[in-house]
């Protein structure tokens, strides 16, 4: 028997990180998690029909986050602006950067990936989910998840190699 307080509420941080990865805004991400939890709460009558409450909640969260960014994009260019304001650390030699700067460079790499790759990276490399679970959340096949993850990792690898080769 699924209990909201014990089984759903503890997912909040995982939901928050996924929403944050998609929206790139902490306040928006928090709102989305609230909305997600309220929606899951409203469906509590059907909890026993749900295979995995975690995958179910993550799916709702991702859909809400996608709705949110598409709404935001149609309203104005805020997302692009936020990209512009992040410091362009790649323009300085990586060796000279502090670890914190390297981290923000990696964050930029992460956040510049297409949304699907970003979400797959989030669920796999940060949340440690299996291909099966990720496929369930995103509504992909396991093969699609693997391909998406491969592209994301290859992109990150190439960016790392660029720095190695050109010092940029």
């Amino acid at each position: 028997m699924i209990n909201f307080r014990d089984d759903v509420l503890p997912l909040k941080n995982r939901l928050y990180r996924l929403a944050l990865r998609i929206t790139l805004d902490t306040l928006d991400a928090e709102d989305i998690v609230q909305e997600t939890l309220i929606r899951v709460w409203n469906m509590r009558e059907d909890f026993d029909k749900i295979d995995s409450i975690e995958a179910f909640s993550l799916t709702i969260c991702r859909n809400l986050a996608l709705d949110h960014i598409s709404r935001k994009e149609s309203q104005n260019e805020q997302l692009d602006e936020s990209y512009d304001t992040t410091p362009d650390v790649a323009s300085t030699p990586l060796q000279a950067l502090l670890l914190e700067d390297k981290r923000s460079w990696v964050m930029k790499l992460f956040n510049e990936l297409p949304e699907k790759q970003r979400s797959v990276m989030q669920l796999r490399d940060i949340e440690g989910k299996s291909y099966r679970e990720i496929a369930q959340v995103l509504g992909f096949t396991e093969e699609q998840v693997k391909v998406t993850l491969f592209r994301a990792r290859q992109h990150i690898r190439q960016e790392f190699e660029k720095i190695d080769n050109y010092g940029l």
């Binding site: 990586l94 670890l99 390297k102 981290r103 460079w105 990696v106 990150i156 790392f160 720095i163």
Partner: peptide, 8 residues
């Protein structure tokens, strides 16, 4: 160099 990625 990969520390940044995994530490992140």
């Amino acid at each position: 160099r990969y520390c940044a990625l995994f530490a992140f």
